[in-house]
């Protein structure tokens, strides 16, 4: 009987999200794969994908506004500063904030899962 490949050795699936021309900068897509929901964003021609449900109460993160946020830490001399302008995804449920590029939740110790996005033959593809 042939051996089943271990999960880590399986090749990841590439899921077509949209043609490049249908997914221009400033737009976003919600991709549902089985039960998982992924939010994919095009920011100035770069694609970012992260887990699409807020762990607080499951609001759809694909619909969050992108803006900046305030930070206050040793690097700012403990002064409050506006930062990450355009990179902060604000949950449309209750306002939790996530760094779009890393999935890190501002003010919390967890991060959302992020996914690789590639462009192949004019198609934007989610790798998972």
């Amino acid at each position: 009987m042939p051996q089943q490949p271990s999960p880590s050795s399986r090749s990841k699936r590439k899921i077509t999200v949209a043609a490049v021309e249908d997914f221009p900068p400033g737009t976003r897509m919600e991709v549902q794969v089985g039960r998982a929901v992924i939010a994919v964003f095009n920011i100035d021609g770069e694609y970012y994908a992260l887990y699409g449900r807020c762990p607080h109460q499951s609001a759809p993160l694909s619909r969050g506004r992108l803006q900046g946020t305030v930070i206050c830490n040793a690097e700012t001399g403990w002064e409050t500063e506006w930062a990450y302008d355009g990179e902060v995804l604000v949950c449309p449920g209750h306002g939790m904030e996530y760094h779009l590029k890393s999935g890190k939740a501002f003010g919390y110790t967890f991060k959302l899962r992020t996914y690789e996005v590639v462009v192949e033959e004019g198609q934007v593809k989610l790798v998972m």
């Binding site: 999960p7 399986r10 990841k12 699936r13 899921i15 077509t16 999200v17 949209a18 737009t27 976003r28 897509m29 919600e30 991709v31 549902q32 794969v33 089985g34 998982a36 759809p60 694909s62 619909r63 969050g64 506004r65 992108l66 449309p92 998972m128």
Partner: peptide, 18 residues
């Protein structure tokens, strides 16, 4: 990891301001 058997649904969405 996604498997080929899983269904895929893609939709364009707009940010919600409320």
């Amino acid at each position: 990891m996604a498997t080929d058997a899983q269904s895929v649904k893609v939709q364009k969405v707009e940010p919600s301001f409320n």
